[in-house]
Design a protein around this nucleic acid. Structure first.
Lengths: 153, 153
DNA sequence: TTGCTTATTGAAAATGATTCCCATTTCCAA
DNA sequence: TTGGAAATGGGAATCATTTTCAATAAGCAA
């Protein structure tokens, strides 16, 4: 299963090396899952996926790896207020949608794609202003609307 | 200590009655704390405050009451991603600021007040459009920027 | 290749916030 | 005033996440 002698390193390889992190099988497996699965994955989602192929990889390792990836900026952590964190690749096709519509009753989450142009323009402007004013280094944001979905209202 | 015979009912009294909820001492105490304390209170913050006067009121009751108040729309639940929920009155002077700047490292939270006019205008527009499009009943939103504060960067 | 050093791992226990359970107390409409 | 439903509180239960620690394995140097 080892592919280390293959020089076709995955896109995240260099970031690991630069940070002095080792390329291990669990980390590769977890990144593979993140790469092939779209949407918001909870740690347990990832764990289950990974487990199909590598039943020896532990939940703790998934937590650790996902935290590592977040620090490196490879994944983004999302919080839908249901008591468990979600993760998604910060690069990639769906990277723009950190804007959500959340049902307070059943927990359903909709990534809406409308109005993103306007939103992004607006959010980026505010972001720049806030960075200057409060001397923050802002690297992400999250806009969530809460309410009741079609079924629950 | 009973003030029930006083007809000067607090502003939230009628909402309780309308919903068929009883006016109890713990609930009054918790609302008093919420009324006099500005900012984002965790359940434990509230518990500690309440405990000063009423050492018999239990933590469980604070959780229950705060949940009740949220359902009634009297308080708003906030989530800063630090693993504990915060609450604030949804009416009142600071009711507009559900827009935050959060330090990922030390957890510092800034309620920023700038650009709210534009933001609100913008957010309300999007809110209306989303309600129609997805048939949601939206009752709140939260916009958070994440990054590193002055000290932590 | 072979060791060696040290990061990484996994299992189990610890933690911390929140919820559940249930016997007891309290509110309040009749 | 009183009966019964609602509310309470304290401890146990739950659930996500962290910590601990001994065993393992990545990757550098020889």
């Amino acid at each position: 299963m080892s592919r280390t002698r293959n020089r076709n390193f995955p896109w995240w390889h260099q970031q690991f090396v630069d940070n002095g992190y080792r390329i291990t099988e669990p980390r590769q497996a977890i990144l593979k899952v993140l790469n092939k699965t779209a949407g918001h994955l909870s740690v347990e989602d990832i764990y289950h996926q990974v487990h199909k192929r590598y039943s020896n990889i532990g939940l703790t390792t998934v937590y650790r790896t996902v935290g590592l990836l977040e620090n490196m900026g490879i994944v983004r952590k999302l919080d839908f207020g249901d008591g468990r964190a979600r993760y998604e690749l910060s690069k990639g096709p769906q990277a723009i949608h950190h804007h959500h519509l959340i049902c307070k009753n059943c927990g359903k989450v909709i990534d809406y794609k409308e109005y993103l142009d306007n939103e992004l323009k607006f959010v980026n402007k505010v972001e720049g202003l806030l960075e200057k004013k409060y001397n923050f280094k802002i690297d992400s944001h999250q806009l969530s609307f809460y309410g009741l979905c079609e079924k629950c209202k």
